[in-house]
Simulated scan of single mutants.
Amino acid sequence: MHPTARRWHLLTAGVAIVALLLQLVLIVAGVAVLNEAEVPGLGIRLGRFLSYFTIQSNALVALTAVQLARNPQQDGHGWRVARLCAIAGITVTGLVHFVLLRPLLHLEGWNWAADKLLHMVVPVLAVAGWGLFGPRPRITARTVGWALLWPIVWLGWTLMIGATTGWYPYPFLDVADKGVGSVGAACLGVTTLFLVVFAALATLDRRLDQTS
């Protein structure tokens, strides 16, 4: 199994890195600024690039997949948290994009390619690789508790930055446009989705280990 697992994880890491680099090139070139009327400065564009949950989740997938390509049985507490963050985060990224964001986007050319890689191809590769090759068991209640800190901190930081600058990475978090009630409902919905994904992954982690 190890040679196949190594190749799969290497493929996943490669696609994630290509997707991130392509999106970064588009950001630097100033041709991927979403619906901005004016292109902001490079420093602001780079800061916003790093602020997207999509970018962070894809980066985590790339980092953990590279390590798994080297050692498919990688373990350790910090590793378990990072790997769970990567798989849960990329799962939520794909689901939220498909349900909430995809209908709002009208992309072409390389912007379209980067969007599909980040939001569809990498999630499928990462989740399929986890399901097929693990490693498992790796998910405990303690791991879930630590992993949940990342989306909570990201959400709090994003809302604080949005309140001070008026910029939000995702339309459903824009308090000025959507209102406090709508944003609160969206935050509750995404948090619930994370909890469901964590629970599903933990259950599958145990069951797949028993059948392997």
Rank of each mutant, 00 (worst) to 15 (best):
C187G: 10
T54Q: 10
V92A: 14
A86I: 00
E38D: 09
L105P: 00
V31Q: 02
P123Y: 02
L159S: 02
T4S: 09
G184D: 01
G134A: 02
P3W: 02
L118P: 02
T12K: 08
V122K: 07
H119Y: 06
Q210G: 04
A13V: 03
P171A: 05
W8E: 04
R142T: 13
I161S: 02
V127E: 03
W157K: 00
W110Y: 08
V39G: 04
V28T: 04
L11W: 12
G30W: 14
H106V: 09
G129S: 14
T158H: 07
V175Q: 01
R48E: 12
I90A: 14
R83F: 06
I55Y: 07
W130V: 05
G14T: 07
L42D: 11
V190S: 04
V15R: 06
T140Q: 05
G134L: 04
W130L: 00
P137D: 12
T140S: 13
G156K: 09
V81D: 08
A163P: 00
G109F: 13
G30V: 04
V81N: 07
W130G: 02
I55Q: 10
L63V: 06
K116H: 06
A86Y: 03
P171L: 08
V39L: 03
A5D: 13
V18H: 09
L117T: 13
L148C: 00
F172V: 07
D75N: 09
M120Q: 11
L60F: 15
A65M: 14
A32T: 00
W130K: 03
P103I: 05
A147L: 13
S182W: 03
G145E: 13
R6D: 06
H9S: 09
Q210T: 06
L193W: 14
R206M: 09
G89N: 09
A176K: 08
L149T: 09
L100W: 15
H9I: 05
H9M: 14
V190K: 03
F133N: 08
T165L: 00
L60M: 14
G179H: 10
